[in-house]
Design a protein around this nucleic acid. Sequence first.
DNA 1: GTTAGGG
DNA 2: CCCTAAC
Length: 512
Amino acid sequence: MCAIDLLATVAGSLLLESKSPVNACLVVQNTVKNEYPADENPVKAVPYSESPSLFDNGKCGFSSVITNPNHLLVGDKVGKEVEGFSSLGVSGDVKPDVVASIGSNSSTEVGACGNGSPNESRDDVNLFSRNDDDENFSGYIRTRMTRPVPRIGDRRIRKILASRHWKGGSKNNTDAKPWYCSKRSYYLHHHQRSYPIKKRKYFDSVYDSNSDDYRLQGKTHKGSRTISSMKSRNASFVSRDHHVKLRIKSFRVPELFVEIPETATVGSLKRMVMEAVTTILGDGLRVGLMVQGKKVRDDGKTLLQTGISEENNHLDSLGFSLEPSLETTPQPLLSSYLSDHACDDVTLCHDNALDSSHEPEPSPADSFGKLGTSDHSRALIPVASAAMLAPRPPNRKFKRTEQQLAAQRRIRRPFSVTEVEALVQAVEKLGTGRWRDVKVRAFEDADHRTYVDLKDKWKTLVHTARISPQQRRGEPVPQELLDRVLKAHAYWSQHLMHQLQTEPPSTQVEAL
DNA sequence: GTTAGGG
DNA sequence: CCCTAAC
């Protein structure tokens, strides 16, 4: 009932804004999107939240409509924020990972959220005003069957899991992952290509999880300038000469959770969101493409091979996304700018805020606010979180789910022989109890290697050196190095006291 | 913030 | 690599 009320409220708001019947369709993702028949009507996105499983069968575009009150409440505010973002070329909301969907021609097409086959028909959800009942906001939702208009970006709707990270959509909606903001550093995780095959499933899902992002449709006021092609409203069609013409409908920014004190000013919130988005956008983006819910990673494929041609109707399920470039390392989202601003006490992706859907049967609703999720990376993923402003159900558990863990886990980066060499040399000199020093001494510039990583690597090196070559895996480490590892390990095991000193006497080094 | 170990 | 207790 609460969800319905929320929807009703949204509908009511929409109605108030556009006196005419709202012919809006809700695209539920993280956001409730309303598209107006006429281009001139401002399209306002209503961020929506975690919605549960009411219509989770994927057949109804409504599936994730039930939104979180919090998000809805924030909706309007966020919508306003969008304008600022538009200058960035991205429709705005607070989410950095942008996912664009290419619609088929119909301007009124609604992003359906089928989770299943992209081709199945979907029910668009329309909001209609209703005069009866108490408040003028009452309304009801009616589903309407429309031609199949699969929208990749929307498929994951159910995935309430926030996404976090700049992850793309995956075949399995439920796998969508939010950007996860590590409590340690509030990083937004990026996609990670070299994810171990073993965990591939995670990776894929994580990678695709922009589904949780809620999107704000760019406003399309008549007078407003359309920023590049990222504005909302588009259609795609194939011309006769075998050319595929596409127009990006909108981009979704990754979800971004924000926690800010009630006493903070609206201005500080706006500033915070703006900066967060700017930081993310300025961090380097790359475009991701999804066809029928699947990420297309092979840049060498032709559109035809990918299924993007006039021969099929895949255009309906084309999706573009803006993702953080892989080259870029996760950026401390807030730390960099929060400190210098009025919103010092603003926290992004507070771990506690992450609701864990660790329950037996995590429903979309449960997983909703999970991560800030997500891809990343990091991607943990977000809305501006105004979502967090409103009270939300107490988090039953703080423990993260497997998905969440996968989302924030760093990629595996095997040590090269060169690195091993450097590590061995450093340990020979500094011992095995001063990893911080080892880091500074030999891996100062290797940002991806923490002292804990070095410590762990040493641990495995010692183990590797002790087992038979046949049992070793990965790039072979020269026996010479392994010998030094054992020697140094033995040495420092017997001279722990020396570690307390700065540098071992040269004699000791020689002894090694 | 580090270290040391178990996972 | 992650997670954390213990410093």
